[in-house]
C-alpha cells in the first residue's frame, strides 16, 4: 500500500491573508512550481492563529505544519505577528517537551513580494518532513478511538 510507494507528507500551512498568502499567490501566478503536498488555510493574521489549530491539524492527519505571516513591522494590524511570535516562543518548546519534533512545526515570515521565498520555504518544509517520515505517534492516537477495549475508531481523516 502507501508504505510501499514513496511516502508523501501531508503539510498544512496556516497563512496570513495579507503577506504570505499573497506571496504564495504570487508564486502561483508566476507559475513557480512547488511541491503539491501543502493544504493552505488562510487566516486574517498570524495573531489569530490559535495553537489549537496546529493540534487540530495533527489530529486530522497532518505530518507537518507551516505557520507563516508578515515580517516584523509589516503586520496589517500592526502587532499581530509580534504577539504570535511570543506564543510560538513558548508553544514550540512545550510540544518539543512532549515529544513532538519541532521540525514538524515550522514558522516563517514571507511577504507579498516574496513568491520565491515561499517556494523555497514550502519545499524545505516538505523535504524535511518527508525525511522525518509519517507522524506515527499522532497517527496512532488518531486511530485509537474511544473504546477502552482498544478497538480502533476512525475519526482521523481529513474530512
Amino acid at each position: 500500500m502507501a508504505e510501499e510507494t514513496k511516502f508523501e507528507p501531508r503539510i498544512v500551512a496556516f497563512l496570513c491573508n495579507w503577506c504570505t498568502y499573497a506571496g504564495a499567490d504570487l508564486a502561483g501566478t508566476g507559475r513557480n512550481q512547488y511541491q503539491a503536498n501543502v493544504r493552505v488555510i488562510k487566516l486574517p493574521c498570524t495573531g489569530g492563529i490559535d495553537p489549537l489549530f496546529l493540534i487540530k491539524a495533527f489530529e486530522r492527519g497532518a505530518d507537518g505544519i507551516l505557520v507563516s505571516g508578515c515580517h516584523p513591522g509589516d503586520c496589517h494590524y500592526n502587532s499581530g505577528n509580534y504577539h504570535a511570535r511570543r506564543r510560538w516562543n513558548v508553544f514550540r518548546p512545550l510540544l518539543e517537551f512532549c515529544g513532538i519534533n519541532p521540525e514538524r512545526i515550522q514558522f516563517s515570515w514571507v511577504s507579498a513580494a516574496e513568491g520565491g521565498k515561499w517556494v523555497e520555504t514550502i519545499n524545505g518544509v516538505v523535504d524535511t518532513v518527508r525525511a522525518l517520515g509519517p507522524f506515527e505517534g499522532y497517527q496512532k492516537i488518531n486511530a485509537v478511538g474511544s473504546d477502552a477495549s482498544g478497538e480502533a475508531a476512525t475519526s482521523g481523516d481529513t474530512g
Binding site: 486530522r60 478511538g145 474511544s146 475508531a153 476512525t154 475519526s155 481523516d157 481529513t158 474530512g159
Partner: peptide
C-alpha cells in the same frame, strides 16, 4: 467526535 464525513458517537 466527527469530521464532515464520519464520526464516532461516544459515551463519556
Amino acid at each position: 467526535e466527527c469530521t464532515m464525513s464520519k464520526g464516532d458517537r461516544v459515551k463519556n
